[in-house]
C-alpha cells in the first residue's frame, strides 16, 4: 500500500548505488515517522479547568453529541473542527496534537447547539474557546494581527473609557512593529477628522469619572486571569485573558 501522507514519511535517498554491477540507487530506508503519543501534559486540563469558562471540561465523557450537531463540523463541513476531539486532547494533555488545531479551534461561531444538547452539561462553546485561549497563552499558537488588534482595542478602551482612534492607531502600530509614513497618517487623519469619525486630543469627548470604573474593570480582569499559568508562559497569561493592560 502506498503511503500517501508525505509528512509522515522520512526518505533516505541514495543517488548512485551500484552493487556488483546491479544499479540499486533510489529511495532507501523509507520510514514512517512515529505517531506514538509520548508526551501527555496534565497541565492543560488544569489550566482549562481553572479558567472561569472552562471549568465544565471535566464533565465531558466523549459521546460526540456536540460534534454531531456542530454547524461548523457537519453543516459547513469543516471536519477538522471537532469540539469533542479538542476537549479530548485537552483532557489527556496531548499538546503536540492540539497545537495543530491552533487556528481551527477558533472557527466556532457560537451557535451554542452543543451547549443545548450536551447530556453532561458541558459548556462546550466556552470550553473550546478556553482551549483556544490556552494555545495562545502558552505560545503554541502564533498571535495573529487580529489578536494584537484586540489587545490594542482593549487597552485603548481601558485607558480612555471611550475609543480614541488616534491612540488606537498608535498602539496598534507599535504592537505590529509597523511604521506608516507620516504623510499618509496626516492625510488619513484629516479626512477622518473632517468627517467627524476621529475622536482624539484634549477636546474630544471623554467618559466621566472613568478612573473609578477602570480600577473596577482592572480588578476583575486580574481576577479572571488568576487561573493556573501555562507552562513557561506566565507572562503571557494576562494577555490571553483580554487584559494585557499595564
Amino acid at each position: 500500500m502506498p503511503i500517501v501522507e508525505p509528512s509522515l514519511v522520512e526518505v533516505q535517498r541514495t543517488e548512485r548505488l551500484d552493487l556488483e554491477g546491479i544499479d540499486v540507487s533510489g529511495d532507501w530506508n523509507t520510514f514512517l515517522r512515529s505517531r506514538v503519543a509520548v508526551d501527555l501534559d496534565v497541565k492543560i486540563l488544569d489550566w482549562v479547568k481553572g479558567h472561569p469558562q472552562g471549568d465544565t471540561i471535566s464533565r465531558c465523557w466523549q459521546c460526540g453529541t456536540c460534534t454531531a450537531g456542530c454547524c461548523m463540523h457537519t453543516d459547513y463541513g469543516l471536519q477538522e473542527f471537532n469540539p469533542r476531539y479538542f476537549i479530548y486532547l485537552a483532557q489527556i494533555g496531548y499538546e503536540e496534537e492540539l497545537r495543530r488545531y491552533a487556528d481551527t479551534v477558533w472557527r466556532c461561531v457560537s451557535c451554542n447547539k452543543c451547549v443545548e444538547r450536551c447530556p453532561k452539561g458541558v459548556k462546550v462553546e466556552e470550553v473550546v474557546h478556553t482551549i483556544g485561549s490556552y494555545l495562545i497563552a502558552s505560545g503554541l499558537a502564533p498571535e495573529s494581527p487580529a489578536d494584537r488588534f484586540d489587545r490594542a482595542y482593549t487597552e485603548n478602551l481601558l485607558r480612555h473609557g471611550i475609543l480614541d482612534e488616534a491612540d488606537l492607531f498608535r498602539t496598534y502600530e507599535r504592537l505590529e512593529g509597523r511604521k506608516t509614513p507620516a504623510r499618509q497618517i496626516l492625510r488619513m487623519g484629516l479626512t477622518l477628522l473632517r468627517s467627524g469619525r476621529l475622536h482624539t486630543g484634549p477636546f474630544a469627548h471623554r467618559a466621566r469619572r472613568w478612573a473609578q470604573m477602570r480600577s473596577v474593570l482592572r480588578a476583575q480582569l486580574a481576577r479572571d486571569a488568576r487561573c493556573p499559568a501555562p507552562t513557561g508562559a506566565a507572562d503571557r497569561t494576562v494577555a490571553a485573558e483580554g487584559g494585557g493592560v499595564r
Binding site: Q62, C63, G64, T65, T67, A68, G69, H73, T74, N82
Partner: peptide
Amino acid sequence: RGRIGQITLAEGGSRLMATGEDT
C-alpha cells in the same frame, strides 16, 4: 461509538437520517 445528535427525514421522507459523530 458515538451519540446521535439528531434524527431527521431522508430520501424524500421515506427513511430516517441519524446524524452523529463516530468518535
